[in-house]
């Protein structure tokens, strides 16, 4: 059924740290490698060695330049399915192939019943679904549903391939619906945010903002100078105190 579950027992998802991501593409290639077997297989490419190579990838890493001049910075930006709580990509599906799991909130496409009409990709504002031109069905991030519950794996491998591959620890996996989980605490601590919350699909995946840059920290009131002045004569301590009071 393409009706959405009223609630899901868990909200499994990713927390992506835009501060520590270095744009190495390891998550994207690891995703492609893992998903070319198992649930999403085959994950085909077209014209791979020709003039117009392209194919279905479930994870894409953009690089953006943000801000102007010396305040500009590069932000590496991984983008994949956000496993939204109320997405139209599920409800528009005419066959029931696109569905959201009640047990963990993962949004999946059943490759055996998808007719490849592409309407779900039209309904996604995040561009997260990619049609497989050779397989004739829609492909998307499965949150590595074929890894995370796989008891033949060592516990540390029971995470999505992208999380396992990230060399900087910029990708975290867990239950975002549980406020006590490590990912939820990380989101709370770092001010994790939703992409395009205005759209109203309620993404489960969260993004952690880049930390302040050096110039932003330096622009804060300089306590070092005040402390230095305040170590002088008593009158200077008084002036420093008055300065602090008046600066408040």
């Amino acid at each position: 059924m393409t009706a959405l579950p009223a609630t899901t027992a868990k909200k499994l998802g990713l927390v992506i740290d835009l501060d520590t991501c270095v744009g190495c593409q390891a998550c994207a290639t690891s995703c492609k490698e893992w998903n070319n077997g198992g649930y999403s297989a085959p994950l085909t490419d077209q014209d791979p060695y020709g003039a117009d190579p392209h194919g279905a990838w479930l994870n894409r890493v953009h690089g953006y330049e943000v801000g102007e001049g010396d305040k500009g910075r590069t932000v590496h930006f991984p983008r994949s399915c956000l496993h939204c709580e109320t997405p139209d990509c599920v409800t528009v599906c005419p066959t029931g192939a696109s569905y959201k799991r009640a047990e963990d909130g993962i949004v999946l496409v059943n490759p055996d019943t998808c007719i490849g009409c592409k309407l779900c990709s039209w309904a996604c504002p995040y561009g997260a679904r990619e049609y497989d031109y050779d397989d004739g069905v829609m492909k998307k991030c499965t949150l590595c549903v074929d890894r995370i519950y796989n008891e033949t794996f060592a516990p540390e491998d029971r995470v999505p391939a992208c999380v396992r591959a990230c060399p900087t620890g910029a990708r975290h996996f867990g239950d975002i619906g549980d406020p006590k989980s490590a990912v939820s605490q990380l989101v709370a601590e770092r001010g994790g945010f939703d992409l395009l919350p205005e759209f109203g699909y309620k993404p489960v995946n969260k993004y952690l903002p880049p930390r302040k840059q050096r110039y932003e920290v330096a622009a804060a009131p300089s306590r070092a100078t005040e402390t230095e002045v305040a170590t002088g004569a008593a009158i200077e301590k008084l002036f420093a105190w008055v300065d602090r009071v008046m600066s408040r």
Binding site: H54, A56, V61, H62, H76, R79, L195, P209
Partner: peptide, 23 residues
């Protein structure tokens, strides 16, 4: 809004994730 980076300034694409257009 799409990137959630507006508080840092104007967002411009720098490195595309792929060389050829995808689906």
């Amino acid at each position: 809004m799409a990137t959630g980076l507006g508080h840092l300034g104007k967002v411009r694409p720098l490195e595309p994730p792929h060389t050829q257009p995808n689906f």
